[in-house]
Design a protein around this nucleic acid. Structure first.
Ligand code: MN
Ligand code: MN
Ligand code: ZN
Ligand code: ZN
Lengths: 142, 142
DNA sequence: ATATTAATTAGACTTTGTCTAATTAATAGG
DNA sequence: CCTATTAATTAGACAAAGTCTAATTAATAT
């Protein structure tokens, strides 16, 4: 299944279609969360999503935000980015790319895959399967 | 300051010397923690270190373990490895290398820098300073 | 020895995330 | 449509990693 989103933002209809294509039941809460994520290619923490989705009137619980993000990640709709010991970022851009992380501001920026090449994947021990390769450039900028 | 440890394990004397060279006061607690870390090149979590250092008789508090690991990281004696959202690993090998992370078992393995090359460091925006480049190969192995 | 400074400590606290059991919403079949 | 069944949501308890504070203890310098 090829999930390259090309037209941002995804509107409500497109989001419902996307969920359906992944075999995810399109509930109100999931649609709301997906609309936030797929407004543009971006990196959001669970907490940022929880706040955003509830900023007009409270509508989605913390448990559902975590459940939904976990589900989206499992289905490959979003990618978890682990760069900060204190929280996970969810990346709405699942196409291959690398990251630049500003330690001081806690902000993530994309690096296009053409810009940076990793060569020499070592042979993996028997029974191991590559799940992904993360390249993170850590910067300070005080 | 060049901190390439070459003879493992570092004994008590070597550890005290190492701390002194970094301007770290060699207290009993710090020596104990350093001896665990510098027994061999390895990746340990704060919790693993806390347990190990207290396995004969309790001698070092949780606060001191965290203080000490933070201090060692600041001084460049150890390197933090952020691959798991639930805990930070401290790497006693500070020479340049990459990592392979087994998601299912939570274990980290080193990849020699010769084995894997990153080419094409993008130009950084003004005022940004590179802190490090992390390459992590994530694998499953169930 | 004493004074001064630095490190350690227990335990409260915070934050991120998980879990449970009860409620509510969605779906399917008649 | 109505009803039965299943799936999702929820509040709030809970867990784990890590931080912070104020008091104590240890190290250093004179
Ligand atoms: Mn957050
Ligand atoms: Mn741990
Ligand atoms: Zn990204
Ligand atoms: Zn390593």
């Amino acid at each position: 299944m090829d999930n390259k989103q090309r037209q941002w933002p995804l509107d409500r209809r497109a989001v419902i279609k996307l969920l359906g294509d992944c075999g995810i039941q399109a509930t109100q809460q999931r649609i709301d969360i997906a609309q936030i994520l797929f407004h543009q290619p971006q990196h959001l923490s669970a907490d940022q999503i929880l706040k955003t989705v509830n900023e007009s009137r409270p509508s989605v619980s913390k448990a559902t935000v975590y459940n939904t993000l976990g589900l989206f990640a499992d289905k490959g709709l979003v990618r978890q980015v682990i760069v900060d010991p204190s929280r996970v970022f969810y990346d709405s851009n699942t196409s291959e790319h690398h990251h630049l992380y500003d330690i001081d501001h806690g902000t993530l920026t994309d690096i296009a895959p053409e810009q940076l090449t990793v060569s020499g994947m070592p042979a993996l021990p028997d029974g191991m399967v590559t799940e992904g390769i993360d390249v993170i450039i850590r910067v300070r900028s005080e």
